[in-house]
Simulated scan of single mutants.
Amino acid sequence: MTQAENRAAANAWHEERRRQRDAEARVKAVEAELVELDRLRSYLIRERTAGYTRRLIDAIDDYVEQITGDPTRLHAKNHSIG
């Protein structure tokens, strides 16, 4: 392998590692955001004293759908049929 080929291979490897680290960081950021949104959503469900909570919960669900593709990601999963 020539020196130029070696450099090209090393650059490609570094780019791939950078892409993998960026993807891992994005996954961690989304998970942290989901934890905070779940906390806020749970609080809004428990404290239904204000009339605007339904709109906020719907907005949270819409945002969660945008970042995960699943609008029910934060909904309770403890219900089982059968």
Rank of each mutant, 00 (worst) to 15 (best):
Q66I: 09
E24Q: 13
R55H: 15
T53V: 11
A12Y: 02
L44V: 01
E15N: 10
T49V: 11
R26T: 08
D22K: 13
Y52V: 11
A76E: 11
L56Q: 11
D22R: 14
I45N: 06
Q3L: 13
E36C: 09
I57H: 01
A23G: 02
A59E: 10
R21S: 06
E5I: 06
R55T: 15
W13L: 12
D70H: 01
K77P: 02
H79F: 15
E36G: 10
A12C: 01
S42V: 09
E24A: 14
S80E: 13
E5C: 06
A9F: 04
D61R: 15
V30A: 02
M1C: 12
R19Y: 00
H79W: 14
R55D: 15
A12E: 11
A23T: 10
I67K: 03
A4C: 01
A59F: 04
E31D: 10
A4G: 04
R26G: 03
R19G: 01
E47S: 07
R17W: 00
L34I: 05
A59R: 08
R73H: 13
A23K: 11
L74S: 07
V35W: 08
A50F: 08
A50W: 05
E16V: 06
G51D: 09
Y52P: 01
E65N: 11
L44H: 00
A4M: 05
R46N: 03
L74Q: 06
I67G: 04
K77S: 07
T2H: 10
A59P: 04
A4W: 00
Q3A: 12
R17Q: 11
S80M: 11
A59N: 08
Q66E: 15
P71H: 05
A29H: 05
A29K: 06
G69P: 05
A23F: 07
E47Y: 05
V64Q: 00
V64M: 02
E36Y: 07
T2V: 07
A50Q: 11
N6G: 01
E33V: 01
T2S: 14
T49D: 10
V64W: 00
T49I: 10
V30R: 07
A12N: 07
H79P: 07
T68I: 02
K77H: 07
E33F: 03
E36L: 14
A8Q: 13
H14A: 15
D38R: 15
Q3E: 14
R46S: 04
L56N: 06
A8C: 05
R55N: 15
V30H: 00
D38T: 15
A10Y: 02
D22L: 14
D38Y: 10
A29T: 06
N6T: 12
R7E: 01
G82P: 03
T72V: 09
I67Q: 02
T72P: 00
L37G: 04
A9E: 10
A76F: 03
L34Y: 04
T49H: 07
